[in-house]
Amino acid sequence: MADKDLLYNYTLHLADNSMILGQRCGEWCGHGPVLEQDIALTNIALDLIGEARSLYQLAASLKGGTATEDTVAFLRDVLAYRNVLLVEQPNTDWAYTIVRQFFYDVFHFYLHSELMNSSEERLKNIATKTIKEVTYHLKWSSEWMIRLGDGTDLSREKMQDAVNGLWEFTGELFMSSAIEQKAFEAGFAPDLNILKPLWQEKVEDVLAESTLFIPEKNYQQKGGKTGVHSEHMGFILADMQFLQRAYPGANW
């Protein structure tokens, strides 16, 4: 069995990504461009938060004592969240939301494809369940990439703008944190260097079909994985943690 601390910290990487993206997707609920897509994006939010719950439950069991999925999910400050910068980026509009989702879905898909072979049984089980959901997410976001990229001039412009705006947050997905590196060495997490070309190829394929381009400017931001987040993160947490902080220890 993997080292408890290491597994705990690695699990947070996975859980925080899906939690924060789920939180962002949830903001759309009631405001979508058309009722059917409002429902579809809420489904994705539900899947992501569902996955995060399984992971936080695992993390809580590793931590032991009085830890629960909620204490782990809600009671850390910004520096202790391990999610990438990409998932905390604001919804902005439907174009940014779709592009953010697509970039993450491709990563999420290949990540869980690998985790299905993890030597750590509990991660393997979560990945086996998650992969079915992520397969659907990826199909949905790819279709929207193509539909809007190859839709009208206006939609192409908005999508290209979103690709340009979010591209600098994609590199971090593949920059291993010390925890991810150790988890890989311990044999229960994939090598991110192997995921990167898979991600790149899929993204290039879908962008080509969407008549969209990868921006030339390729400086990549980083920091989320080590807790150095964007300013957005504090506001996400302020919403998310409000009741837990205002009424410590209460039952809901």
């Binding site: 461009p33 058309v34 509009d93 206006l154």
Partner: peptide, 8 residues
């Protein structure tokens, strides 16, 4: 805000 999405 969703008009361009529906049109596309």
């Amino acid at each position: 805000n969703g008009a361009w999405v529906r049109e596309a």
